[in-house]
């Protein structure tokens, strides 16, 4: 399994964003809220199909798990697919975070200041 795991740790940008959104959400996590949250946070438009594709892909990689949730009238009685972060998903987010921090820390402070950028956010 480690080999399998290592291979799948590489995440695309959208995948990372979606994973973060799922991690951040407290309520039922399915296609619509994820899409709305993404739009709100990034200001970009995402189609439902793209969000679904990404969610399923993350599930396939083992970072999300899914279950079937309740139906509503406006969905025409169709049920939701609810997603939740798995332990592996949490780990991979942490790992990405650490890598980023390491890289940030290696940027000379003076260089950032020279460009008029603020100090290390972390």
């Amino acid at each position: 399994m480690p080999d399998h795991f290592m291979r799948k740790t590489i995440l695309g940008e959208l995948e990372e964003l979606v994973l973060l959104v799922v991690a951040a959400c407290n309520e039922d996590v399915y296609g619509i809220p994820v899409m709305e949250e993404l739009q709100q946070q990034t200001g970009r438009d995402f189609t439902i199909s793209a969000v679904h594709t990404t969610l399923y892909r993350l599930e396939e990689k083992g970072f999300l798990s899914s279950s079937v949730g309740g139906a509503t009238a406006e969905r025409g009685g169709r049920r939701k697919r609810l997603f939740a972060l798995t332990a592996a998903g949490g780990e991979v987010l942490l790992e990405i975070q650490q890598t980023r921090t390491r890289l940030w820390q290696s940027i000379p402070q003076a260089k950032l200041e020279l460009m008029g950028l603020s100090a290390n956010p972390f």
């Binding site: 679904h52 406006e74 169709r78």
Partner: peptide, 10 residues
């Protein structure tokens, strides 16, 4: 079921 439900909701 899930994609159609989401599409309708949206």
């Amino acid at each position: 079921e899930y994609i159609q439900g989401d599409l309708h909701e949206n």
